[in-house]
Simulated assay, not measured.
Amino acid sequence: MKKLAIIGAGPMASVYAMRARELGIETHCFAWKQGAVAQEDVDVFQDISIFDIDAIEEICRNVGIGGVLPTTELTIHPAALVASRLGLVANDPEVAARITDKYRNRELTKCVSGLCQPRYALVRNSSDIETLNIAYPVVVKPTAEGGKRGVTVASNPCELKAAFAYAQDEKKDSSDVIVEEYLEGGAEYSVESLSFRGVHSIIQVTEKWSSGAPHCVELGHHQPAALSLEMRAKIEDVMACALTAIGMQHGCCHTELKIIDGKLYLIEFNARPGGDHISFPLTELSTGYPYITGMIEIAFGDFQIPDTSQFDHNYAGICFITEQTRQLKRIFDNCEQYSWLYEKHQATSKLERLTHNRGYDTNYFIYYSRDSKPTFLAEINLD
C-alpha cells in the first residue's frame, strides 16, 4: 500500500486524507496534536512539530513513505525538506523556503511579458516608511502571510503607520512588510494550477468577490471566471512563464491576479492549495477534474498532465455570509429550496465583519450547477 505524509493538520489535511482513502493510500499526518483538525481523519497521526525535520524524516523512512504534501504556507518548506531528503518528488528546498515571499516573487516576475506589477517597496522598520516613493492609496501586508492576514489599504501617512503596525502584529515570523501601490478598479481572480517537472497546467480560474479597502477580505469565489477565450488563453500563457520564474517545479499553486483594462496585474503567489474551499470542492465541481488526486499523484511522481480541453464547464461557487454581505442573508436563510445548493454551513447566528479570510468558521453556502449560474448572482451587487 502506498503511504502519504501530510505536513500540517488543518482543513486541507482532512481533504487529502479523505481522497487518499478513496485511492487506497495510507496517510501519516505530522503536526502538534493541539488544534489538529485532521487528527481523526488520517490513518496515523504523529504529535510532532512540523519543523522537527530530522524526526519526521526518520519516521517516514521507517514506515516507507512514498510522497509528501504540504497543506499551508507554513508547511511548504518543511515538506520540501522531508521529501528531498527521502529522494521523493519535491521543489528545491531553497526555493520552497522563499516561495511565499511576496517581495521575492515580484522581483523574479517583473520581467515576465504580459504580467504587470504595481509599484512596490520592502519595509523592514517604521523609519523606512518616511522614504517611500509610492503615491497613496497603498496596500501594506506581510511578505509571507496568506489569507489576507495583516493586509490594510492606507490613504495617508497616519493610516500608513497604523497599517504597518497591524502587519507587524499579524505576521508570525521575522519576515518583512511590503508596501504596494493599491490597484483600483478591475476585478480580482485566482489561478489554480498544477506543476510537474516544470510543466504547468492551468486547471481553473476563479473570480472573486472582495470587500475592497481597508482589508480586502474575500467574500465569495465563483468558477469559472467570466472571461473571454482570449483573456483565458492570455492568463494560461503568462502564468506558465511566471510559475517558471519563481522556481515552481512540482505541486499546486494558488496565484492571485487583478485584471484592469485588459491588463494582468500580479497580487501574489501561494504555492499551496487555494483555501476557502477553492481547491476543494469548487475546482473539482466546476471542471470535473479530480484536482486533489492530481496533487497526490504529483507527490508520488506518477502524475499525467491532464487534457484541460476535456474538462466539464460547470458552475460552482461559494458565498460567505458576513456583515459585508448582509444582502445575501435572505438567500442563505432559504437556500435549501434551490436545486443548485451543494452545501450550507452555519457557524454563527449573527453576522460578523471579517478582517481576514475565514473560510471554515463563518456562515457560507456552496452552489453547483451543470446548466447555468444561479440567478441570484446577477441580482446581487456587492460594490
Rank of each mutant, 00 (worst) to 15 (best):
M1Q: 09
V82M: 02
V179M: 05
A17H: 12
E73I: 00
Y166S: 11
L132T: 15
V138S: 13
F45E: 10
D43C: 04
R124W: 14
T308I: 02
C241S: 15
D47N: 09
Y120S: 15
R119L: 11
R98D: 13
G67S: 04
Y342I: 00
S14L: 05
R358E: 14
V199I: 11
S211A: 03
D101W: 11
E73W: 03
M248N: 14
Y289N: 06
Y338E: 12
D54G: 09
P374F: 05
G35T: 08
L341I: 00
D128C: 14
I25V: 07
L4D: 06
R61P: 03
H313Y: 01
F280Y: 07
D101Y: 12
K3Q: 15
F269W: 05
M239N: 11
L282M: 07
E145T: 14
P78W: 12
L219D: 05
G67K: 14
E188S: 13
R104F: 12
Y120G: 11
Y342N: 03
G220I: 00
H250I: 08
I202F: 03
Y342A: 01
D237Y: 03
R19I: 15
R330V: 02
L282H: 02
V238E: 04
A271T: 06
D92A: 05
E180Y: 13
G275H: 09
H345V: 02
A135G: 06
Y16P: 15
G185Y: 13
T287F: 01
E170G: 04
E192R: 12
G66N: 14
A79E: 05
K344G: 00
V37K: 07
